[in-house]
Design a protein around this nucleic acid. Structure first.
Lengths: 334, 334
DNA sequence: CTGAAAGCGCTTACAG
DNA sequence: CTGAAAGCGCTTACAG
């Protein structure tokens, strides 16, 4: 490993000048800068991240806390984030939230506090009060994306509106007998409602607006297969609904699979709508609420960079956009 | 930020002892260790990553180079890697390979050489000769996963065998008119054949064994929609095949979609097989070659840790396992 | 525009 | 088992 001294010697300047030439900080004559850079390139010199971080206080690294790594949605958001960081020379280190409470504790109490990152993006994680406190005490900017807690500055889709929009679409087609497949935390107060709960609330609101009170809700996990099993029950049980609003596209796929297994024609005998804009939605003809996860990631990435002063501060963070995409899985009831 | 000095003062020891107590390195009396740890916990002290890295030469961080972040396969591998690193206290920083050659250069010439990571995992990337050289010159262990180049120590599935197995399955059902949908680099010499090319080679071999020479191959990108468009052409063109072997499950989904659009019944009129073991395969009834990407990630993670001496060296790296999973998308030809 | 020097906050031989 | 001190390799006021 060649060090900064060797470069300084080769270029005939001090190490201070090498540092300035390579980082671009501080005034320097063009000639000197060029000479130093040539020497560095020549020697194959690269600044040590650890030394530069220690000396400058800047790690040029952003942490991202994700609840799940292998979900299409999160992977896509990550891609969006990475697309903004890399061109500015920022690395991205991932903190995958484990289910193990002990490992989570270590992460929040130690891992995130080592000064490895200059900023943090937290993706739609359900946080305990303790975890939330640790996040707020971090001496770095923290940007939430889909994080329900008001304490964290964040980007958010209006998920109540998403729920309303999906439901209104089914209602406008003439459906009345609609079941919502999702998850919900009934106890939570308004401020901290998580995403699935907000979607459900939108569903309930839209149904109420149509004069339908206490509409049917079925609890399911957010996997395709979990939803498939619920749908199998639902579609073979009494009072088969004419439409199902699934809280995610992957759940909607499970519903489609169940319908196919049972020989129920979609959309003639059953309408299905999901949420997300999953990449396979077009192929499977699924009507959905697209929410542009890649763009969400880009915005979150730019938001931390802005908080660090690396990037121009963008327009105030209104609600993130979403859009009803009507495809072949919804139609008027038979 | 409380520093190591404060902890030393609080515990009535030197900073050297604090360092030893907190890192677990070097001999120390249990009493002292306990006292120091209590003081540290009390003060909320956490070791600075940059300082520790600079002083020790250990970053406790593993880099992962991925060609694509938003593909299910890679996201799942990443999850597997993370599952091995986190419990050992290692962080994971992601290097998403951009399509932009300039950005790639910066990554290989500078980014990876900053000493930010102690080891590197490289995922099935097609590397230029230059990039390969940079990787080999890195002063840290590099583990490949699906990397075709022999220069990089690596874990690999025998993709020629995968191609043969998929093809043999179709042949054994009685199909003769089989098309392989994939990608291939005809010029490459044997040593550096990439994964898609190996799969194709397996296909060609199996077909030849069945007496079918120069079997039909159609080039497609590795997306569902790209495959769908190819399949649409193929299934409406002359000499419609009775079976299609797609080089990935996502491509196979595209074929299934095309068949559905054209009213071609699967598997009665068309058999379809993919590769990967995609999470939605069960739902869509896709026959496939499962290759356990999560387990692949786990093994790669353990392999770097072993190279760093953090983990016991595991059994010699034989070929990674794969397995034919027969579901509803393949059957004898009509 | 450039340099000498202090300092970032740890770890680790070395000595006892 | 524990401490004093050097050193890891940079960056940045400060001075000129």
């Amino acid at each position: 490993m060649t060090g900064i001294e060797e470069v300084a010697r080769a270029a005939g300047v001090s190490t201070a000048t090498v540092s300035r030439a390579l980082s671009g900080r501080g005034r320097l004559s063009d000639a000197t800068r060029a000479r130093v850079r040539a020497a560095a390139a020549d020697l194959g010199y690269v600044v040590s991240a650890a030394a530069a971080t220690l000396a400058s206080g800047r790690a040029e690294n952003i942490g991202v806390v994700v609840p799940l790594l292998d979900r299409w949605f999160f992977a896509t958001v990550l891609d969006g984030i990475a697309s903004q960081l890399a061109p500015r020379g920022y690395d991205m280190t991932l903190y995958n939230l484990s289910a193990d409470p002990a490992q989570r504790r270590v992460l929040f109490e130690t891992g995130l506090r080592r000064g490895r990152v200059d900023g943090l993006i937290v993706l739609s994680v359900d946080l305990t009060a303790d975890e939330l406190r640790h996040l707020c005490e971090l001496p770095i900017p923290v940007v939430g994306l889909g994080v329900p807690h008001a304490e964290i500055e964040g980007l958010r889709v209006d998920d109540t509106a998403v729920g309303r929009t999906a439901t209104a679409h089914l209602l406008s087609l003439g459906h009345r007998d609609i079941v919502h497949l999702g998850r919900s935390v009934p106890g939570a107060d308004d401020g901290a409602l998580d995403i699935p709960t907000r979607r459900r609330r939108g569903f309930t609101q839209a149904m109420a607006d149509a004069g339908i009170h206490s509409p049917r809700f079925v609890e399911a996990d957010f996997t395709a297969d979990g939803a498939r099993r619920r749908a199998l029950d639902l579609l073979t049980g009494p009072a088969r609904p004419t439409a199902i609003f699934a809280a995610s596209d992957e759940m909607a796929y499970g519903v489609l699979a169940a319908a196919r297994e049972l020989g129920i024609a979609v959309p003639r005998e059953l309408s299905v709508i999901g949420v997300d804009g999953h990449e396979l939605g077009g192929l499977l003809e699924l009507t959905t609420i697209e929410q542009f996860p890649h763009a969400q990631g880009e915005r979150a990435g730019r938001a931390v960079l802005a908080a660090l002063g690396v990037e121009q501060v963008t327009a105030p963070t209104a609600s993130l956009p979403f859009e009803l995409v009507v495809r072949g899985s919804t139609a008027p009831p038979a």
